[in-house]
Amino acid sequence: MIELKNVHKHFGRKKVLDGISFTANKGEITCLVGVNGVGKTTILNAIMNLTPIKKGEITIDGELMRPDLYNKVAFIPDVAIMLPNMTVHEAMDFMKDYYVSWNCKRAKEITRFFRLNLTEKISELSKGNQAKVNLLMGLALDVDYILMDEPFSGIDIFTREQITDVFSSRLVEDRGVLITTHEIFDIEHLIDKVVLLDNGVIYKEFNAEEMRETEGKSVVDVMREAYNR
């Protein structure tokens, strides 16, 4: 379980996170959705210790982040993070060199699934394929938790379908997935839990299926309520 307790974060005078607490569980897909304002990406960065928080605590299965936990939690940001002059193959070798959790077999499986050309340089790939390389680097790690930041942003619909497929495929399996997106439509049927952020605080945290069952509302319905408040 990834747990955030009363997390605060400022950018200068601006409060970005103002006491955020929620959990993302193993075996569930949790979606961070923002009504307005920023903060979603900051939460993921903070979980990975890529940006400091002002107050609060973030734990992964009860432990504070430390280097060897990067074998347990993978983060797929929405920017390219391997060197542009690396080929896909070299990038995979780099990962293999440092992560004990790197799974070569799975990596190969993913390159086939995404139809990636291993000998091509990352800088020469299309935007969609670069996003796939990013996914590959995270999904081929045998981790318990995967964090994804806006996996659908700026990507063509066919790539989008492929990425959506990832969520219900063996590639995700029993891991805990925490994803941020504003394009909820693509994955509305895939998510377990929704954490709705509004101006640095959590407006609502709910199970999507329970929401449909007890109140007959879709995730988008709840978001709409938040917007129209």
């Binding site: 990975m48 210790n49 890529l50 280097p67 060897d68 936990l69 990067y70 074998n71 983060f75 940001p77 920017v79 390219a80 993070i81 391997m82 060197l83 542009p84 440092y98 992560y99 004990v100 990352i122 800088s123 680097m137």
Partner: peptide, 17 residues
């Protein structure tokens, strides 16, 4: 800076920073 933000990868390596 530059085309790709390699800092993400480096800071997320499971080695002491």
């Amino acid at each position: 800076f530059g085309k790709n933000t390699f800092a993400y990868r480096l800071l997320m390596l499971p080695i002491h920073r």
